[in-house]
Design a binder for these strands. Structure first.
Length: 1032
RNA sequence: GGGCGGUUAGCUCAGUUGGUUAGAGCACUAGCUCGACAAGCUAGGGGUCACAGGUUCGAGUCCCGUACCGCCCACCA
């Protein structure tokens, strides 16, 4: 029966089988259990903008490793799955698609139709995302799947907003916002990126009104955005340009003193420019400052407006012309100046990016078109002094990729001063962070990420929470113009879930309701109108640990599972998301939302770029699963997770027809289908959406790093196959045999000692998020110790009736433990083998929680047996390994045919002799070498190869096999190397090393020198013997 | 401009509090179809640990500086 086990692990079969099994058995379902400690993770909800890529797969694999480990370790584990509506991002992709496919904008189809399309999109991608998670083996409690826009989350959102409003922590005000003219919404600073574009620097002349004699007739300002001049309400000059220049010069001198010779030239250049500016421009700037104090005005070109020339320190005399135009409604810095100088703020733009009525002759043009016309008109009027070509860093919307226009708009904000401070106080300083530490504070790992979190919060910038979108949580505010407070009181008499505040600026009531049920006639005789804007996506994400557990209701879930145990995510949303969850958790519940935060590396593609949906370089984890299986994918990802900030994971396509590897390039990575250059047949990629493409066979994604893991899975599969085929029939509890140490041989004790060490390493490693170390430790143990040594040695014992029973027990015991240690990383493979073992040995012990016939996902996590750790045993075993390696090396280097047995002896002391003698059968079975003898006075054959080791000499009889010249050559090289080492060590041991280094280190070095010397003399004797042999 | 990473074998990366002759996988070379596994087995070659200085008996590891690569934040009329 056992021989039916295939030679290769079949991941697809195991995946479909066990995914269904776990689901049917309710293995991942969780509910509050007073007898167990909770261990909770909420998934960072992926955006429904698109499918998951390998970056998500890493995030989710790590969480699953933690969850599966804790589940086995006896915790009541809950992993809450879900997806995020991702307001702007999702609306943007749907809008973009609408435009590409139907050339329509959202205004063409209207709010309801657009929202319906987005819901369709959401359903499609949520389904796909959940399928991806399931297929890579995530052990979430699927019955609890949440969506940030579902009724429960909506309730939490309204409650949060209400609480903030009631405590006067939200306000509405005119603010300069980043306006996305494509999406027609404000976006936060965090949703803006800067990119260099080719632009120009225009110098424009503003005529002075009624210039006096000796006064300049024009003031020249430089700008990259001439069209905004229509909104200018002043031109500023520095009040004390001389003093300002003096200060800068002073600073430069100070810098020059400290500067390295290399930097000096640059500073000198700056100084020169400054001096030149002083002579050429300072007199005029001082004159202008004087004019400004004199309240002189300028005539704003192309308009009939007069604007003041004024003094403000924002005008830097060292930059541009030293004068700067002030456009408060369209520039963040000018806005500040405008507030300071109480300037009029003239908004010249409509929400769609065209000029409004304030644009005069240019009304209706886009900002772009207006720029051209304005420059032309200025030129015609002789008011364009000069134009410089130059590269400008321009703000772009992260969502629509279009240029941002600073825009004055009404906006809702959350006051951050106190909230941010609380969130700062909630984290442990980086230096104090220890995994698993019992503390009220949050620990961030790796600790270096703590700084960014604290720094960002320290700015305490108010959070703009409104978005002019249709996809999201509508702000629960209703406006009422003309009711009296008494009327409001009457209308909401018995309601504790409605509150209001008077908006002085707009002369209206703000009515905030916690329940989404305010009718238009809720206030008798008055119309109330709900705010059109929706909330920033992060507003609902901030509540994720709360809303997924039932908040604002004090549910049993919330009481049991909150705060969650750890949050696992990547570094780019530490501020946007992690910080805001902390804020929301503390504010709403008074308790941090999670105890630890683990930040894992980002996955980069072969070009070193982070994977993202918008770039199109995201690789579908299922394309990897298709080729290598989910276990291999997961193992690779765990293996990659070092403390580094990024990991590179290059992949290519594999043609499903001819298996040719097709390089994945920036060009073809966005294609839904392509043709194989080799076999000329077509195939689809993960991006296929149209029926034609979907009908094609799918290309898998291949990468070297996955092969390593796939090979490992297969290795373990085959080791298990060997064990399954070797086990005899018995009904015993194999672990009883382990506890009876009297029958254990050296190799048994050795592998049990190693197992105990590795068990501890793996347990500690998972608890402290050192995933790479964990994967490496099991990999090395399973492959090198278990397969290469233990299994090989056991082969001999299985054929020996007396030695068989213990060997079988240990063999099985260790495999059983490897499987359990590995289960969090490779769940399908281990579950498959576990059940097969269950058929042969249903009564395996060590199962506190479940019977052997049940699944490994619920089996007990191995506990390291400290008593089994035996350093001396490991050292003794290492001697055996050394000798075996030496014999093999001699065999290999002398090209002894594999079927030819050789004879060997080891010259050694009595202790070693006693150790090696029982190992004779293994030298035979593992190296084809017959032991001729061990001990002080073994006979040395006339033709022998001798290899000196630490305190021993391995002698292989090569009569009839040896090439004397080659042997001599080898020996000479060896002697030279040894002599060099001896020399180095001798000189080390004559220096002050002896006095200053700790005695134990010195002693170790002495011993090492002795050993080297001995090896050297052995080699010299061997060489001499060779020469003699060669001569006769 | 501020902050944070990185630089170790041809490639991708490990390297705990400084301590014998710096490791792994892939690739490469030679030999193996020996009953778990060719996705494998055995052996081998390959590194002045980016550069320069310092601390130390001793530095890949600690300190200072330089160069290059990358990320984040802020700003640039």
């Amino acid at each position: 029966m056992a021989t039916e086990i295939p030679k290769q692990y079949d991941p697809a079969a195991a995946q479909s089988k066990w995914a269904v099994y776990w689901d049917e058995q309710g293995v991942f379902a969780s509910s509050p259990n007073a007898n167990k400690k909770p261990y909770t993770i909420v998934i960072p909800p992926p955006n429904v903008t698109g499918a998951l890529h390998l970056g998500h797969a890493l995030d989710d694999t790590l969480q699953d490793i933690l969850i599966r480990h804790k589940r086995m370790a006896g915790f009541e584990t809950l992993w809450v799955p879900g997806v995020d509506h991702a307001g702007i991002a999702t609306q943007a992709v749907v809008e973009r698609r609408l435009f590409e496919e139907e050339k329509k904008t959202r205004h063409d189809i209207g709010r309801d139709a657009l929202v319906k399309r987005i819901w369709d999109w959401k359903e499609q991608y949520q389904e796909r995302i959940i399928r991806q998670l399931k297929n890579i083996g995530c052990s979430c409690d699927w019955s609890r799947t949440r969506f940030t826009l579902d009724p429960q989350c909506a309730k939490a959102v309204r409650h949060f907003f209400y609480k903030l409003f009631a405590e006067n922590l939200v306000y509405r005000g005119k603010r300069l916002v980043n306006w996305d003219t494509f999406l027609q919404t404000a976006v936060s600073d965090d949703e803006v990126f800067h990119a260099a574009v080719q632009g120009s620097f225009w110098y424009i002349k503003y005529p002075v009104v009624n210039p006096k004699p000796n006064e300049p007739t024009h003031v020249i300002v430089a700008t990259t955005r001439p069209e905004t001049m229509l909104g200018d309400t002043a031109v500023a000059v520095h009040p004390e340009p001389r003093k300002a220049l003096d200060n800068i010069e002073k600073e430069l001198f100070a810098e020059l003193e400290k500067a390295s010779p290399k930097d000096r030239d640059g500073i000198e250049l700056e100084l020169n420019a400054l001096r030149q500016r002083r002579t050429e421009m300072l007199p005029q700037l001082e004159q202008l400052a004087a004019m400004a104090r004199d309240r002189r005005t300028l005539s704003l070109p192309l308009t009939s407006r007069e604007i003041p020339l004024l003094c403000d320190e924002w005008a830097k005399p060292e930059k541009g012309t030293g004068c700067v135009k002030i456009t408060p409604a369209h520039d963040p810095n000018d806005y500040e100046v405008g507030l300071r100088q109480k300037l009029e703020m003239i908004n010249i733009m409509n929400k769609d990016g065209t000029l409004n009525d304030n644009g005069g002759a240019y009304t209706g043009l886009t900002m772009q078109a207006a720029r051209k016309r304005i420059v032309d008109d200025l030129d015609t009027a002789g008011l364009l002094a000069k134009v410089e070509e130059r590269e400008i860093e321009l703000a772009h919307s992260d969502r629509s990729k279009t240029a941002i226009e600073p825009f004055l708009n009404d906006q809702w904000f959350v006051r951050m001063t106190q909230l941010a401070q609380n969130a700062i106080d909630a984290v442990n300083p980086a230096a104090a962070a220890q995994p698993g530490e019992k503390t009220d504070k949050i620990n961030i790992f790796p600790p270096r990420y703590t700084k960014g979190y604290v720094d960002w919060l320290s700015e305490k910038r108010d959070w703009p929470i409104g978005r002019q979108l249709w996809w999201g949580h509508r702000i629960p505010i209703w406006y009422c113009k003309d009711a009296s407070e008494a009327e409001l009181k009457t209308a909401f008499a018995n309601r504790t879930d409605v509150t209001w505040r008077w908006d002085d600026e707009q002369q209206q009531w703000w009515i905030c309701s916690e329940e989404d049920d305010l009718a238009a006639d809720a206030v008798k005789g008055h119309k109330i109108v709900q705010e059109e804007d929706v909330l920033d996506t992060w507003f609902s994400s901030a509540l994720w640990p709360l809303s997924t557990l039932g908040w604002p209701n004090e549910t049993p879930d919330l009481q049991y599972y909150y705060p969650t145990s750890v949050l696992v995510t990547s570094r780019d949303i530490i501020t946007l998301w992690v910080a805001r969850m902390v804020i929301a958790g503390l504010f709403n519940k008074g308790v941090k939302p999670f105890s630890e935060v683990f930040i894992h590396p980002k996955i980069l593609d072969k070009y070193g770029e982070g994977m993202s949906k918008s770039k199109g370089n995201g690789v579908d984890p299922l394309s990897v699963v298709l080729k290598y299986g989910a276990d291999a994918l997961r193992f690779s990802l765990a293996f990659l997770t070092t403390e580094n900030q990024d990991v590179r994971l290059p992949v290519d396509f594999e043609c499903p027809h001819c298996q040719a590897v097709i390089e994945l390039t920036k060009k073809n990575r966005t294609l839904p289908s392509m043709e194989c250059p080799k076999c000329k047949k077509k195939f689809r990629t993960q991006l296929a959406e149209k029926p034609d493409d979907k009908a094609l066979p799918e290309a898998a994604v291949v990468g070297e790093r996955f092969e390593v893991a796939r090979n490992f899975c297969n290795k373990l599969w085959n080791a298990s196959r060997f064990v399954l085929m070797s086990l005899g029939e018995t009904d015993e509890q194999y672990d009883d045999g382990i506890r009876d140490t009297s029958t254990l041989l050296l190799e048994d004790k050795w592998i049990l000692s190693r197992l105990a060490t590795v068990t501890q390493q793996v347990t500690d490693g998972i608890n402290s998020y050192r995933f790479s170390e964990v994967a490496r430790a099991i990999y090395d143990f399973a492959w090198d110790d278990y397969c290469s040594f233990y299994v090989e040695m056991v082969k001999y014992r299985l054929g020996n009736a007396e030695l068989r029973t213990t060997a079988e027990r240990v063999l099985l015991f260790v495999l059983d433990n490897i499987l359990r240690l590995l289960h969090p990383i490779t769940p399908f493979l281990t579950e498959e083998v576990w059940h097969r073992l269950g058929e042969v040995r249903p009564k395996r012990g060590l199962r506190e929680q479940v019977a052997a016939s049940e699944c490994i996902a619920l089996a007990a996590w191995p506990i390291a047996d400290k008593n089994a750790v035996d350093v001396e045993i490991e050292q003794r075993f290492a001697v055996f390994q050394q000798v075996l390696r030496a014999v093999r090396e001699i065999r290999a280097s002398r090209n002894v045919p594999p079927k030819t047995d050789i004879n060997f002896a080891v010259k050694c002391d009595d202790v070693t002799k006693k150790l090696l003698e029982p190992m004779s059968p293994y030298f035979r079975s593992m190296a084809g070498a017959n032991a001729a003898g061990f001990g002080q006075d073994v006979a040395v054959p006339t033709l022998a190869s001798m290899l000196p080791l630490d305190g021993m000499e391995v002698i292989v009889d090569l009569s009839g096999l040896i090439d004397v010249d080659a042997e001599r050559n080898k020996k000479e090289k060896e002697i030279a190397k040894l002599a060099e080492l001896v020399k180095a060590k001798e000189s080390k041991l004559t220096g002050s090393f002896i006095e200053k280094a700790p005695a134990s280190v010195v002693e170790a070095e002495r011993k090492s020198l002795e050993s080297l010397k001995e090896q050297l003399s052995v080699s010299r004797v061997a060489l001499e013997q060779l020469i003699n042999t060669g001569n006769c």
